[in-house]
Design a protein around this nucleic acid. Structure first.
Lengths: 187, 187
DNA sequence: ACCTGAACACCGTTCAAGT
DNA sequence: ACCTGAACACCGTTCAAGT
C-alpha cells in the first residue's frame, strides 16, 4: 500500500524527527509540509505512532540493505561484518533520533515494523554464520554471537551519542573502535 | 538544595515515568499526586526537563552505589564486575523508562546530572582497573576496556527490553548471558 | 520563600461534512 | 478514496496575585 501523499508524509515525519526528536513530529507540521490539512495523515495512518512506525521500518530496511551490500562488496565475511558494524554505529550516531525511535517503546505491534526488524536481524545472523564458516569467528552458537555483536554495536552507538564514551578525552574510545576491540578479542 | 515538596515531586515524577514513559509525566498529574497545584513544580525546577534530570541523576547514583556495594561484598574484582554488570542490565530492563531517560536527548546540561553520570562511570572504571590488576582481564587500555563492557551491557539491556534478542526463541541469549559471553572471551 | 488560578499557545484525535 | 474545518480534551509554560 503506497501513495504519493503517504510517502510524502513519511518523508516529512522523518525530517522533523531528525530535526528535533519525536516531540517535533507534529501532525500539524507534517501536514503543512506536505500541503494537506493537519488531520489528513489519519487517512493514511491510524495514529501518529503508526506514521512513526513507517519511518522506523524504512530505517531498519536501510540497515538490512547495508549488510547485504557489504557482503557483496567486501573481500571476506569478516571484513563485511566489520564494515557493516562500523556503518551501523556511524549511521546510528548520525541519525540518532531514528535510532532511538526504533528501540523506544511501541504501544502498537506494527506488522511492517516487525518484518523490517526481522529482516535486519536475519541479514546480520547470516553474515555471522558466514564469518564462522570462514574461520574468522569462534564456532559458538551463532545466535548468541550475533546478539553479542549487535549489543556491543548498539551500546557503543548510544553511549557515543550521549557523550558517555570519552569523558576525559584520554584513551579515546569511539564507537567504531570498540567494534574493532571486540572483533580482535573474538579473532 | 532539598525540601519535602521537592523530593515528593521527584518521587511522583519517577512513578509516572515508570508507569508510562516521559509523556505520562505531566506536571499536572505530578502536582496532583503531591497535593499542590499544577505549576508548583516551577518553584523547585526550572522546567519539566529539569525535574526529569533529577530523576535521572538519582538513578545514576543508584548504579554507582550498586558497583561500590558489589566491590565490598564480592570475593574478587572479577566477580564484583560480573555482579555489577548483571545488576545493571537487570535493573535497566526492570526500569526501562529510567534507562531511556538517562540516555535520551537532553537540551539542558544539568550539573547534577553530569556529576551523577561521572560518578557511575568512575566507579565502573576503578572496578575494571582492579580486575586488570588481579589478572582477570587483559592489560589493555582500561578506559577502552571499560567502555567495551559498558557498551555491551547497555546494548544487551536495550535489545533485551525491545525484544530484539530472542526472535525465534532458539539459542536463547538473555542480557546477563551476553555479559558472561563477553567476560569469557576476555578471560 | 512558596504557592495558586487564569490564561496562552500549543498538541493528538474525533467527527460531520464535502469532492 | 481522500480531504477539510471545527471541536474536544489535553499539555508546558507564563504571569499576576496571594500568604
Amino acid at each position: 500500500v503506497s501513495s504519493q501523499t503517504r510517502d510524502a508524509l513519511i518523508d516529512a515525519a522523518e525530517a522533523l524527527l531528525d530535526g528535533g526528536g519525536q516531540d517535533a513530529v507534529t501532525l500539524r507540521e507534517v501536514g503543512k509540509r506536505v500541503g494537506v490539512s493537519h488531520n489528513a495523515p489519519y487517512k493514511h495512518f491510524s495514529s501518529k505512532e503508526a506514521l512513526l512506525a513507517a519511518v522506523a521500518a524504512r530505517e531498519l530496511d536501510h540497515y538490512r540493505d547495508a549488510i547485504l551490500r557489504a557482503r557483496r562488496e567486501a573481500g571476506s565475511p569478516l571484513e563485511a561484518l566489520r564494515t557493516s558494524l562500523h556503518e551501523h554505529v556511524n549511521r546510528s550516531v548520525a541519525h540518532l533520533e531514528r535510532f532511538h525511535l526504533i528501540y523506544g517503546r511501541w504501544t502498537t505491534t506494527d506488522a511492517e515494523l516487525i518484518r523490517a526488524a526481522h529482516g535486519a536481524y536475519d541479514a546480520m545472523l547470516d553474515l555471522v554464520r558466514a564469518a564462522q564458516a570462514s574461520g574468522s569467528l569462534p564456532p559458538t552458537d551463532p545466535e548468541r554471537l550475533a546478539a553479542l555483536l549487535r549489543a556491543t554495536a548498539h551500546g557503543a552507538a548510544d553511549l557515543a551519542a550521549a557523550g558517555h564514551l570519552e569523558p576525559e578525552g584520554k584513551g579515546r574510545s569511539d564507537a567504531a573502535g570498540l567494534i574493532d576491540d571486540l572483533l580482535a578479542q573474538l579473532g
